[in-house]
Design a protein around this nucleic acid. Structure first.
Length: 665
RNA sequence: GGGCGAGUAGCUCAAUCGGAUAGAGCACCGGCCUUCUAAGCCGGGGGUUGUGGGUUCGAUUCCCGCCUCGCCUACCA
């Protein structure tokens, strides 16, 4: 509703400025006044025009308002306009008309065009997922839901680096610390699965042990171990040997665990491109030719990068006949390609610019769709991925440099449109508070104790595993549900506890904007009061109880609502006494506006905030108006309608955050 | 050294393109359950927005200097 009315207003303002002042203003700045006494929509446009027109802003505002009022019929939904302060123009909505716009639909946007590819999660398949990975996946998954709500066709990808050093490190652990053969590793994977034990947990410890082992022993031993690590990496990259087989076995088993963990949070994927295929299907070779042809890569024959193929960094000033030692190495002097090089090839594929494709195999089945994985020679019949018009990479802020290099390469090759539609959806890490680290039994240094947070480290095995956190949250909510829901049986209580726990976790990760570090603490994460998922879910449960006790349904109530005359609607929404009700309707009418804002800024936190504020306004309404004891039947219908719309908007907003709305709590 | 980000209430965070009186939650203090669920509501104290300048009708927001913190900056992936 608000989005629609804002569009009407800015169109009308543009027309007024054109007719009256012969001005063509591209976009009219609109904002929300600080309180409802000053209207619902405001514009400070008169301030901007003051200098251009050589007039006081107040005079300009008065002229604009006079023009708007003269043709008020051209602006359905608006009641009046006023000049306030030094020159603000405040618009007051026709409240009865506005709520009638909210009832039929909210959350719809003019359908967006385009095929979008979102990549998220992308955990190295060598250990269990931890809280940092949860932030990534939850952010990505929520953004996918927002894009789909706006009408985009979206494919969800989870990139799997199954041939990297991290996988190599656990393979070194299996081969040289545990001295296992391929057959023994195979047996271990089977045995763990049959005992209900988790391979990713097993690898979590082994990876930490191996990392520690590299740094132990004499200098000679250290050098030898380092070499062992490199040799193992190369064997895995090459493929077709026992070492690579172990890597494949482990990374596939761990990957499956990651998909299971994420599914607990309702997160699903469409395609899992793997680095092994990027290597074996020679994506890089194809990209290398294009990069050389376009001049993005050049051979350095001087300076510290002598013998390498390099590219200039974004913003680098290139001087004639001078070696740029700051250039990014893409092909090393020994002929091997760096990570960024492979990433450029992969991103050319994402935009359909590489001239090559993966093979595809089925990998994981969700209730309503299949998740595919890359393969050298796949199934004959398969969907096609890649060839997107816009991409979003949910990757933490520490990788902004390599991401910028990939974008720079695309731009350098002349793919400016693609570069413009390449979004590094960056976010800050999840760290632990020192208190939390101590609670988990880690020994931390005096220096770390003074910090407000400590970075988690898979290498050190330092962190909170995702499944452990989810289990802990469910246990905590289950205890609470058991004490409240004595009439429900255990299965129902468990279901409710899971919905609340997952809701709390997702909200916890989403309420903070992307670029702030989350200092994780069990105290905050296990809190279900105040600005949390459960607070919002609680509002939903209360509304459902009203309908249950009132023996009616939202649909029935809204059908009656249609029969209410506009005049009585206006009366129910007018004045100071009803301001909380109007405020709730107004908030309910903002979903489309919020979705649009989230997409424009790549920031799901605005939707989380919106859902919370809506719940808060409902809680306020709930305490001030006792609905079921209202004696005037028409007003009772109106109050019930207010609850019905609040319910619809709360459930709808939560669904976009993939937070379920329990029946009881 | 260079690049990026951050510094806002005791703590954790918001604040739309530069807009009106800088807002929430937690914590603390005081009230509210025979009423549609108290995972709730109401009230209270709490701020020189790191610091010094500048730009202008207007700065938490933009520019410059300084201070503090984090991350990135390898022929690692």
């Amino acid at each position: 509703m608000v989005l629609e009315l804002e569009k009407r207003l800015s169109d009308r303002l543009r027309a007024v400025l054109k007719n009256r002042f012969e001005l063509d203003i591209g976009s009219i700045p609109l904002e929300t006044p600080p309180d409802l006494g000053l209207g619902e929509i405001a514009t400070p446009i008169a301030f901007e025009l003051a200098r251009k027109l050589r007039k006081a802003p107040k005079i300009i505002a008065q002229e604009i308002v006079a023009a708007l009022l003269a043709d008020l019929g051209l602006l359905p939904g608006f009641a009046k306009f006023e000049v306030a302060g030094a020159g603000y123009i405040n618009a007051y909505l026709d409240r009865a008309e506005a709520v009638q716009l909210v009832v039929p639909a909210e959350g719809r946007l003019p359908s967006a065009q385009g095929h979008v590819l979102v990549e998220h999660t992308s955990i190295n398949p060598n250990k269990a997922a931890h809280i940092g990975h949860l932030r990534n996946a939850i952010l990505g998954d929520t953004f996918v839901r927002l894009l789909r709500a706006a009408g985009y066709k979206v494919d969800v990808q989870n990139y799997i680096d199954n041939t990297g050093v991290q996988v190599a490190d656990v393979v070194v652990g299996f081969l040289h610390l545990e001295k296992k053969t391929v057959a023994e590793v195979h047996a271990l994977v089977t045995e763990l699965a049959s005992n209900g034990q988790l391979i990713d947990y097993y690898c979590w410890d082994l990876y930490a042990r191996t990392s520690q082992w590299y740094g132990e022993g004499t200098d000679e031993e250290k050098t030898a171990r380092k070499q062992l690590r490199l040799d193992t990496l190369h064997l895995i990259e090459r493929g077709g040997n026992d070492t690579a087989e172990i890597a494949d076995l482990i990374s596939t088993a761990v990957l499956r665990r990651h998909l299971e963990t994420m599914l607990r949070l309702g997160i699903e994927y469409d395609f899992l491109p793997r680095e092994s295929e990027i290597l074996h299907l020679k994506f890089w070779e194809a990209a290398f030719e294009k990069l050389k042809q376009s001049g993005v890569l050049y051979f350095e024959d001087e300076g510290k990068n002598k013998g390498c193929w390099v590219m200039n960094r974004p913003g680098a000033e290139t001087k004639e006949n001078e070696t740029d030692d700051d250039a990014k190495v893409i092909v090393r002097s020994n002929g091997t390609v760096t990570y960024v090089g492979k990433d450029i090839a992969y991103h050319l594929w994402k935009f359909g610019l590489l001239g090559k494709d993966f093979g595809y195999k089925r990998f994981f089945t969700y209730p309503d769709h299949e998740c595919w994985i890359s393969a050298e020679s796949g199934e004959p019949s398969h969907p096609h991925f890649g060839g997107a018009t816009a991409i979003y990479n949910v990757i933490d802020a520490r990788q902004s440099d390599p991401q910028a290099n990939v974008i720079q390469a695309l731009r350098g090759m002349g793919y400016t449109d693609q570069a413009d539609h390449y979004t590094h959806f960056s976010y800050e890490m999840v760290a632990l508070t020192p208190r939390c680290a101590v609670e988990l039994g880690y020994e931390i240094s005096e220096v770390d104790k003074q910090k407000s947070y400590i970075e988690v480290s898979g290498r050190k095995g330092f962190g909170v595993k995702a499944d452990d956190l989810i289990d802990k949250l469910i246990a905590a909510t289950r205890a609470e549900v058991d004490s409240r829901q004595t009439s429900h049986d255990a299965a129902v209580r468990q279901k409710i506890a899971e919905q609340i726990a997952i809701g709390a976790l997702r909200y916890f990760m989403l309420k903070v904007t992307r670029n702030s570090v989350i200092a994780f603490d069990f105290k905050d994460a296990l809190s279900f009061e105040g600005e949390t998922g459960p607070y919002i879910q609680y509002a939903v449960v209360r509304i459902r109880n009203i309908f249950r006790k009132g023996n009616t349904t939202p649909d029935a109530v809204l059908a009656d609502f249609a029969g209410l005359p506009a005049a009585s609607l206006g009366a129910y929404l007018a004045g100071e006494a009803n301001q909380d009700i109007w405020s709730l309707w107004l908030r309910a009418g903002r979903r489309s506006q919020v979705i649009e804002q989230c997409i424009a800024t790549s920031e799901p936190a605005y939707l989380a905030k919106h859902a919370f504020q809506l719940a808060q306004e409902f809680a306020n309404f709930y305490h001030r108006h006792h609905i079921l004891t209202e004696v005037d039947p028409a007003r009772k219908t109106f109050l019930l309608s207010t609850a019905a719309i609040a319910l619809r908007e709360l459930v709808g907003s939560l669904a976009l955050l993939d937070i379920e709305s329990p029946e009881a709590m």
